[in-house]
């Protein structure tokens, strides 16, 4: 391998890692936009997506094309159910209390998944085989293209939803000013439910497409959520393109760090850059610190 091919390989690896972070990070934004909270159970939605997919394709023997939407739908139901049971009944909860509730929810979901799928890691065949695609001496797996394609689809879909549809616009209104939204007749509570549905759906899509690469076990969600949270923050909370940009950036930093500096410190390198960016831009890459100041927390 010549030096160029090696560098290109690091970048490809970074994209492969980063696309996973971005995919997980995207899910945080919608609930945040609607409620101002970080949903600590987001990683569990990702895990559930992967696990349902494993069951549907290996036990029920469904083809990927059919199992994929069913898995996502099932997780959406879990997300909505969780919101209806644990968050909907509350009157004027504070942001910190809501976050704690999502932490408790994540523990519960994790526990249930442990009973449902056992403690061993589960695996899923790659959707389009494992023959690597060779570009100028560097390789990338077809599954990574699946992740990137889902990423693009979700970002475009969200842009359309929030800018072109009535429900999407109503949700944005809730995010900007819940009181004003209520005044013009938008049911903020229903929008919150919807935001949980959407977020869990995006998490599930992430889980389905990344499980072939990473294997899935019942406690994988927390680690993924941590990285995804980093991506969402670095990109600027609430910004979908920001999360994608930041996720890829973190992935590439880790990969280049492992390649050119030291694999022992690769995560630290990415985190130091993240902290550095926050110190200069307290609202993240594509976020605004002024908007941040107006949020409840």
């Amino acid at each position: 391998m010549d030096a160029l091919a090696i560098t290109l390989q690091y970048v490809f690896t970074g994209v492969a890692i980063g696309s996973i972070y971005a995919m997980v990070g995207l899910g945080f934004n919608i609930i945040y936009n609607c409620t101002g909270i970080i949903n600590f159970a987001q990683g569990e939605f990702v895990m559930l997506g992967g696990m349902f997919m494993v069951t549907l394709t290996t036990v029920w023997k469904l083809p990927v094309g059919i199992a994929f939407p069913i898995a996502v739908l099932l997780v959406v139901l879990v997300g909505i159910g969780f919101e209806r049971i644990a968050i909907h009944p509350l009157k004027n909860p504070s942001v910190l209390v809501l976050i704690m509730i999502t932490i408790a929810g994540s523990i519960l979901i994790k526990g249930l998944a442990m009973f449902a799928w056992g403690k061993e890691a589960r695996y899923l065949p790659h959707f389009s085989g494992e023959t690597p695609i060779n570009i100028m001496g560097a390789t990338i797996l077809p599954q990574t293209l699946w992740v990137l394609a889902s990423l693009l689809t979700v970002v475009v879909g969200l842009a359309y939803f929030f800018n072109r549809t009535l429900i999407g616009k109503a949700m944005r209104a809730c995010a900007h000013n819940p009181d004003a939204a209520r005044l013009v007749g938008i049911s903020v509570k229903q929008m919150v439910t919807l935001s949980f549905g959407l977020s869990s759906g995006i998490g599930a899509i992430a889980g389905v497409v990344i499980t072939p690469i990473i294997l899935m076990d019942y406690q994988r969600g927390a680690m993924l959520a941590l990285k995804g949270f980093g991506a969402a923050i670095l990109g600027g909370l609430g910004s979908a393109p920001g999360a994608v940009l930041a996720g890829l950036l973190i992935g590439i930093l880790e990969s280049l760090g492992a390649g050119y500096i030291s694999s022992h410190y690769k995560d630290a390198i990415a985190l130091i850059v993240l902290l550095g960016v926050l110190f200069v831009r307290p609202g993240g890459l594509l976020g605004s610190a002024d908007v941040q100041r107006l949020k409840k927390f």
């Binding site: 945040y32 970080i38 942001v95 941590l226 949270f229 980093g230 923050i233 909370l237 995560d267 630290a268 985190l271 130091i272 993240l274 902290l275 926050l278 307290p282 609202g283 993240g284 941040q292 100041r293 949020k295 927390f297």
Partner: peptide, 15 residues
């Protein structure tokens, strides 16, 4: 502030 502070301290802890 807020979540950004949470992430910064989380990141520091991880480092």
């Amino acid at each position: 502030r807020g979540h950004y502070l949470a992430m910064a301290t989380l990141g520091f802890g991880e480092i």
